[in-house]
Structure formats: structure tokens, C-alpha cells
């Protein structure tokens, strides 16, 4: 669900592109259990690390931004998975116990 009630991630991404920034987009494509944000939730990440939107309510954004920056560099789409069973959980796990999969791509 993306309505006007949510932050305008795609509008922000378009503005950044028009300003000459490189931008990647992260999208929640799958959730298990009590994930904090529904599928379709998006985050736009700029090459300088600025971002708009949210894919987890703050739990894993830092890790997603890191991978988004790699995607901006090499142009390759990525699928990231986060959850309590993930080895990265200690660093960037979801406190709610859910799992999410995020698709990261460059806008180019």
C-alpha cells in the first residue's frame, strides 16, 4: 500500500535524480511473522547516504543503505534478507522477531 498518507519516496527519488544524484531503491518484497512494514514499502537512497522512506521502521535501514550504495556502484540488483535467524541479526536484526526480504536496485 502506498498512499498520500505515506512519505512520498518516489517523488523524492525523482527530485534527487533531477538534481544529478545517483539513487537506489529498496523495496520490501516479502515478510514473515510480525514484520514492521508491509510488502511494497520503499526506501530511496542517495549516493551520499541520504535516504527517504522506511523498510523496517528503523531496525535494518543502516544495512540496507550500505547495500544500496554498493548497488549504486556496481549497478547489480540485490536481494537482502533480515530476521532473527539471520547471522547478521545481532547487528541489525528485527526486534519484533519477524523476517523481511528487501530488493535493492539502482534507478538508471
Amino acid at each position: 500500500m502506498n498512499t498520500h498518507a505515506e512519505l512520498d519516496v518516489l517523488g523524492t527519488a525523482a527530485t534527487w535524480l533531477a538534481e544529478g544524484h545517483k539513487v537506489a531503491l529498496g523495496t520490501v518484497v516479502k515478510t514473515w511473522g510480525s514484520a514492521p512494514r508491509p510488502t511494497g514499502s520503499q526506501i530511496a537512497v542517495r549516493a551520499d547516504g541520504a535516504f527517504a522512506g522506511s523498510v523496517s521502521g528503523g531496525c535494518v535501514e543502516n544495512a540496507v543503505i550500505e547495500d544500496a550504495l554498493r548497488t549504486i556502484e556496481d549497478g547489480k540488483p540485490r536481494q537482502l534478507e533480515f530476521g532473527v535467524s539471520n547471522e547478521r541479526a545481532w547487528e541489525v536484526g528485527l526486534a519484533c522477531g519477524g523476517r523481511i526480504e528487501i530488493f535493492v536496485e539502482v534507478i538508471a
Binding site: 500500500m1 523495496t27 520490501v28 518484497v29 516479502k30 508491509p38 510488502t39 511494497g40
Partner: peptide, 8 residues
């Protein structure tokens, strides 16, 4: 779109 759910 009718279900208003993004997904696979």
C-alpha cells in the same frame, strides 16, 4: 491492486 497488496 484490488487486494491492495504488493507481493510475489
Amino acid at each position: 491492486a484490488r487486494a491492495d497488496v504488493s507481493g510475489p
